[in-house]
Amino acid sequence: MGHRFAALRFVRKGAVRSGGRDDLWGCGEDRIGAKPLARHDRRRSTGGSAARGRRRCRRQGRRAHHAGRAGGARTSLRIRGDRRREGHRRPDRSGVKRTLVAAVIAVLLVGCAGGDRVIVAAGTTVVDSGFLDAVIDIYESEHPGVEVSIVGDATSRVLELGRRGSADLLITHAPDQERQFVDDGLAYRYAPFVDSRFVIVAPPDSGLVGSPEQILRTIARRSFTFVTRADGSGTNAKEIELWKDAGIDPAGRSWYLETGQGMGFTLQVADQRNAATLAELGAYLAAAPALSLVPVSSDDPRLVNPYHLIVVAHAPNRRGAADLAEWLLSPDGRAAEKRVDQELFGTIVYEPADPKP
């Protein structure tokens, strides 16, 4: 591959088997529209009803970022693409997904009563990679009585959950959207968390090479299939920015397919279609053993992907969220994050970010 991604090794423990393939990103899907499976829980069994209750809450939270698929993932991309070319509008299922995610959060609030519960809403990339789950496992083991439930969704919807007071701590990676949230006075604390990278991935024989602009211009010139999340995520925001830098508007092109879904699902669709897509590095590495796609983009500085922590000012459990954020940014938290990086990927993929002066 000619760059540093070739040196990364893929270490994923507790993968779920589905349809004869390893489900490495927690989607449990080997075809478009398959039902999601719960991610394997890495926590050791400690016995007792309290521990079982904490595990149940975590499983409910981990499934939350798949809730929206009930509202339309069974529609094939071929049909959706054909309908766009025939002038039909793609159905707006965002309201359905918002309702389903809200319902999951309501279940968390009711079903996980007791103890010090913190609801974390995070971008699907850092959830699909397994990184956040593993770090939170360590936090819970060091803080008995604290229950953390993770809801994964696109950054735009994560911030909306924060606006509604439905989550305590947000982990996002769309700086422009985050700044608006902060400017509106909705953040009790806003701090850099970790930095990862975006990568353009494609089939190994695609012939796509060069800078992001060169790759995207080649894709447009050759009508090479490109799969976009089109879901308001931080990854989608970066992709739109890169298309603008390349001077291309891909909307409506026959080779530009929308999933409206998270990172793991979009990677799978791109793999099935022998297509290219923009991916977050950690989520890609988690899925890589089950994919034929390889990174084709260079180490361009514009592909740096900063994540931030936001403690919601009017959060139901602001104290618990502030304590968790403090730990994540502390020497103990940073050590845990680096340890998880090594265990999952064999290298540092989520680099602890330098605090602002």
Score class of each variant (00 low, 15 high):
G33T: 06
G333V: 13
I171P: 02
L170F: 06
K244I: 10
D153P: 00
G14N: 07
E258H: 13
G68N: 04
Y139C: 09
R83H: 14
R222I: 05
A321Y: 06
R253K: 15
E337N: 00
A122V: 10
H308L: 01
D332M: 09
T155E: 04
A286P: 02
G20F: 07
C27L: 07
A38R: 07
L37A: 11
F181L: 05
L8V: 14
R4V: 00
L216T: 02
R339N: 00
G114C: 09
N236W: 14
L267E: 03
I136M: 12
G152R: 01
G28P: 05
S330K: 13
R31K: 11
D354V: 14
R42K: 02
K356H: 10
I215S: 03
P36C: 09
V96L: 14
R58E: 14
I200M: 11
L267N: 04
R9V: 09
L159R: 02
E160M: 03
N305R: 07
R83W: 15
V312A: 06
I79N: 07
G72V: 08
P203E: 05
T75S: 14
P306R: 08
T347D: 12
E140S: 07
G260H: 01
G123V: 03
P204M: 01
G252K: 08
G81V: 06
P144V: 13
N236L: 05
Q214C: 06
R89Y: 10
D231T: 01
A106K: 05
R157I: 01
T124R: 02
S166W: 13
Y284W: 13
A67D: 10
A275W: 02
A134V: 01
P306Y: 08
L8F: 13
D195P: 00
Q60H: 04
P301V: 07
G95A: 15
G26L: 02
L329E: 14
D92H: 15
V227L: 05
H40W: 05
G72F: 10
H3V: 06
L329H: 08
V135C: 09
E326R: 14
V151K: 01
E280P: 03
G28F: 02
V182T: 11
R59A: 15
G53A: 14
A353Q: 07
P36M: 08
V349F: 05
D183A: 15
P203L: 07
S297L: 03
T225L: 12
Y350Q: 12
V294P: 02
V151A: 05
A270I: 04
K13L: 11
L161G: 02
L161V: 04
D23A: 07
A288L: 03
A106M: 00
P331K: 12
G282L: 04
T155Y: 07
S233W: 05
T228D: 10
V96T: 15
I79F: 10
F198R: 10
K35E: 14
A191D: 08
R74V: 11
G162A: 04
S18C: 08
R4G: 04
A174T: 11
G320E: 06
R55W: 12
R4E: 12
